[in-house]
Write a protein that binds this DNA or RNA. Sequence first.
DNA 1: CGTCCGCACAACCGATGGTTGTGACTCGCC
DNA 2: GGCGAGTCACAACCATCGGTTGTGCGGACG
Lengths: 318, 318
Amino acid sequence: MDTEAVRSFVRAAELGQLQHAADELGVTQQAVSKRIAALERELDVRLFTRTARGVELTLDGQAFLPHARSVVTGVDRAVAAIRPGSRALRIDVLGLRSAQAVVLHDYWRSHPGTDLDVVTLRVNDPRAVVAAVQAGDIDASFRSVTDPATLPRDVRMIHAFDSPLELLVGPRHPLASARTLTPSQLRQHRIWVPGIAPGSEWADFYDQLATDFDLRVDAAGPNFGNEVLLDILADSADVATLVGSRDRYIWPTNHDLRRIPIVNPTLAYPLSLVLPRANPHPGLRAVIDHFASLAPLPPTTWRPSWAPPRETTERPRR
Amino acid sequence: MDTEAVRSFVRAAELGQLQHAADELGVTQQAVSKRIAALERELDVRLFTRTARGVELTLDGQAFLPHARSVVTGVDRAVAAIRPGSRALRIDVLGLRSAQAVVLHDYWRSHPGTDLDVVTLRVNDPRAVVAAVQAGDIDASFRSVTDPATLPRDVRMIHAFDSPLELLVGPRHPLASARTLTPSQLRQHRIWVPGIAPGSEWADFYDQLATDFDLRVDAAGPNFGNEVLLDILADSADVATLVGSRDRYIWPTNHDLRRIPIVNPTLAYPLSLVLPRANPHPGLRAVIDHFASLAPLPPTTWRPSWAPPRETTERPRR
DNA sequence: CGTCCGCACAACCGATGGTTGTGACTCGCC
DNA sequence: GGCGAGTCACAACCATCGGTTGTGCGGACG
């Protein structure tokens, strides 16, 4: 099916005349006629009844029209998503089920019509991420750069929002039935967070966490994928892991796992946003504002030493 | 843009190999390669990075993919909407802003994924509507047939739901500030309902209404369109009209018009559904069930004499 | 280092989709 | 009633497209 034919159909249906649609689309009336005829042949129905002063939708045509519109707008959105120059807002996240992506999805649902694309850079090197922001391949990234001194002058990093941690355990774990937990209650339990690259910001985060609260955080070992991790958690009576409260790596139905909030103090992983200093994408402003509207964490919340300062000045005072 | 190319892109992205996508789509690997290349040429971006063991999405490809999926599903839905034989549920309504269409829209929103098409037969003769139902052009129609004896044996008419009436007035009308009204309060006021064909069920409805409550209902005169009616109402200090509470012929912003519910008794127009007696469309059952779930009207509600009996037996007893 | 595997290019060819020119038809007006 | 002005459809023509088969290139892997 040719999307130009669909577009012609939509315009012809709206204008009631092939001629007018043809003028608008910059082709001859005959071309539109053939496009419609081709559509009708492909679909094996008549879409229009031809009259002496134009065309009128048949019942099939009426049924087809809204779907045709959705196809046309879908195509337009698709093109807008990648058109160099003025394209949709494109933000890099670590994974499509991460808290970052979940919050972006929330934003998108509360702002219908926003052309927002969430992508995942297939690189681990923070410098490559910065380069992608610099080059304009992406408009912003949630990857953190631990040493702000390494940032080029034309790229900046700001605090996005804090992601509070929860303990994720299987039903046989001794803490499985707790409603909330304090960090000190985790002391004697093994916490396994696989797939953390040594030297990364996450490794440092868990290092500080283990030191400050005297925890046994085992961040070594390869990551065999979430499925394997979840399987192990579900069966184990002594292994637990930490996840962001907004992460959606698991479904409620899987494995009978429990999420237990951690409080007094809340433990938060500070998520940052890397974006170009000059001419950021115009849609980015609203996304950052959306972060500010998320439920704030308690003032006692623990954060790692390198947590960027949160912006308190720009909060709207309604 | 060729939708088959888009489909190929989606499958190739999902499978990671052009070869597999080609096998699935029943074409050669080269054809898929050319389709993708054509897409890339048309969009002027690279969608895939070619590797030795397949293809991998570029950032642009990642951004494009969800939109491409939506185009493909849109095309599939469009085709399903009109495929002869097993096509989407198609229901005829009087107007796309009528209570009928509004309720169908509600149903559709609460049942995502339903292939439901709302169309408007361009005829006034009820016999033509019945013929369309008989022929299978539409699966059901909200048009009423006043004399059930004229219905062919293989078509039946059932009660759909009752549409309670509201008074629609401009700001200068003496009743404009009432929160609710009883029919007796309307007695001295002129009620104008233009565009009612003599002899139609609507004419009879307003006749009975005027008789039973001693009202001045002026159903004569041509209908110059809703815009004209609304303009007149907005300016007039003595003309009002009646609308269904679910009708959406007006926006809240237009003209500063007020909708005033009528109670003690509530006045209801009974909407019926004409459908084939044998083998109705399978999706119709759920729609009819949805009608039953609408908020019921008070038992004192007034209805015209020909109101079909409401089904009370089939209500689920949960 | 050779083999395998996957994608791209070339050559070919029928189908497609655009154009211009023309015909059939309806409506409205003289 | 006939004629003009409007519509859409059909015919002829032609460039391009989109499919095929055959082949080449290059990375991954044993």
